[in-house]
């Protein structure tokens, strides 16, 4: 497997403010990589650097084998992007937005109508093709933005908060599309502060806080690493909830509740990426 994205000691400052501090990680071809962090952690800045819109202050970054400071036509043609605030032309119709990008991606003229129609049908937007983007719901805008990102059959997709603020049904639809893309071998780089999204979609995740990559690895692996956060949660018949550390110290109180037949429900709470993040930074992902 080739590395699609490589960063080595990547740093970026805006004036005296360090936004990214010596980030080093790799994203392999066909992998889904999730960058988790709260707002202002530097996620969007990192996407800008990786897509060649911003030049880093220090360190090295490469995309599809090319230095991100010198991305050429070939590398740009391999990028699909879905930004956090859509980047759609609000007055143009759904169809015209995609037809415009088909022209930008230099799809032959006679193929544009079929291509746009096909992608609108696959994203369940065909019935709204004549609607101006300003008249779409947030979920529909998200799907349209994703449709645009998929139009050029990108080798690598950059998705900035792809399901932020969406209802569960639309989120599931978008996740299904991303799984299809992964099955086709597309590398996906997504930023999110939704731990469930990261756990269910990503092969690897990075936790970003204050410009530092504070943890990196497979979601399960990270959670196992912080297994000392594992708890036993007991709900008593009187409605009271008791949380015990999942180790030998829990044996005595647990036996006590069992003997008195006071337990209504019992389950263990494994560490999640969010609890790991809180453990590491003292604050949540939102």
């Amino acid at each position: 497997m080739n590395d699609t994205i490589i960063t080595e000691n990547l740093s970026h400052c805006f004036g005296a403010h360090t936004v990214l501090d010596k980030l080093s990680f790799k994203v392999q071809e066909g992998e889904v990589f999730g960058l988790l962090g709260p707002s202002g952690a530097g996620k969007t800045t990192l996407i800008k650097i990786l897509t060649g819109q911003l030049t880093q202050t220090d360190g090295h970054a490469s995309l599809l084998g090319a230095d991100t400071r010198k991305l050429g036509r070939e590398e740009h043609a391999g990028i699909g992007a879905m930004m956090d605030n859509f980047g759609l032309y609000e007055r143009l119709s759904v169809y015209d937005n995609l037809a415009f990008y088909a022209e930008i991606y230099q799809v032959p003229h006679r193929q544009i109508a079929k291509m746009v129609t096909d992608i609108l049908k696959s994203m369940k937007l065909y019935d709204s093709r004549k609607t101006a983007v300003s008249g779409l719901s947030k979920g529909m805008k998200n799907r349209l933005s994703l449709a645009r990102a998929l139009m050029n059959h990108a080798k690598v997709l950059f998705l900035d908060e792809p399901t932020s603020g969406l209802d569960p049904a639309t989120t599931r639809e978008i996740h299904d599309v991303l799984r299809e893309q992964k099955a086709k071998g597309t590398t996906i780089f997504l930023t999110t502060h939704n731990m469930f999204e990261a756990e269910s979609l990503c092969d690897h995740v990075g936790l970003l806080s204050g410009g530092h990559l504070i943890e990196y690895g497979e979601p399960d692996e990270i959670c196992r690493k912080y297994n000392h956060l594992n708890r036993i949660e007991i709900t008593l018949k009187n409605g009271e909830t008791i949380t015990l550390t999942n180790d030998c110290t829990a044996a005595a109180p647990l036996a006590n509740y069992l003997e008195r037949e006071e337990i209504s429900a019992i389950h263990s709470t494994e560490p999640t990426l969010e609890s790991v993040f809180i453990e590491l930074t003292g604050k949540g992902l939102d």
Partner: peptide, 13 residues
């Protein structure tokens, strides 16, 4: 403001 310019520049424009 609408972010469309950024997306265009990311699309090899």
């Amino acid at each position: 403001e609408q972010n469309t310019l950024r997306v265009l520049l990311m699309s090899n424009v």
